[in-house]
Design a protein around this nucleic acid. Sequence first.
DNA 1: TTAATTCACACTAAATCACTCGGGATTAAT
DNA 2: ATTAATCCCGAGTGATTTAGTGTGAATTAA
Lengths: 145, 145
Amino acid sequence: MRLSTRGHYGLKAMFDLAQHYGTEPIPLKTVAERQNISENYLEQLIATLRKTGLVKSVRGSQGGYILARDPEKITVGDIIRVMEGPIAPVDCVSEIEPAECDQSDYCITRSVWARVRDSLAELMDSISLADMLRDADKAERERRA
Amino acid sequence: MRLSTRGHYGLKAMFDLAQHYGTEPIPLKTVAERQNISENYLEQLIATLRKTGLVKSVRGSQGGYILARDPEKITVGDIIRVMEGPIAPVDCVSEIEPAECDQSDYCITRSVWARVRDSLAELMDSISLADMLRDADKAERERRA
DNA sequence: TTAATTCACACTAAATCACTCGGGATTAAT
DNA sequence: ATTAATCCCGAGTGATTTAGTGTGAATTAA
């Protein structure tokens, strides 16, 4: 039950952009340095985020990336689905196009994985980037207190 | 967020043994055929289950495998931890020995994955093989009705 | 014109996955 | 005592995925 670095880094990068939402575009290099991710690799990952409409790019000097919409309207689930594919502990309970399975009618393990899938999806869909910003703020205040 | 076949097949095999708990030992061949898993491969997997004390084996002719304890006392979480390792969407929130991370103090994405881990663990620990047997029973009755 | 940047695409070493295979050890049944 | 059924063990393997690197072209602000 692990995420690959795609999802892991993807969320980090999106959170970084959320922390600078509303300002100038952030160059990838900056995000990569701040989040400690290989720039070349992150370039590939953010291409996915751009193609699926989660971020927008500004080309040329002084360019960079910005969130495509308000942090309130982007959830962890959105990002993970884009970076890792549909939520599916096993193929036969994929959110989209569940794989055929010889015994799907009476397979009880399948229903366990469906519950796991739903629980994962519900949790990840309930956390927005804005929620994370608020948590970061709170943690920051507590650290200073 | 996928399980490998280790966890998937592991649970299937354990559920199969649960369905025959209290009778003679079940030969691996039978489990493999019923669950549609390669016998050679399942042999490897069940070795893990035996070494960690979830099943017991009876060697020799008429031998096979039996659950090491009551289905009520074995949870999906027990099986998945044995087959897939500690629950950990990302290494820095592993249930055991979380990997060091340069920014663990203030990393908000980390706290997201900790919540995901806890939610996964709570759900999987709450489902026992006995629960699954009851569900199977219920489904069976409904199918006949 | 230059420097900073995104964008596209090809490549790759290492790890993991999902097995197969061969053969030895143990034991019930005959 | 022999046979057949079974567990047990370790080695090997092809395919896929992972986590990158590298090269160079296109775009644009300064």
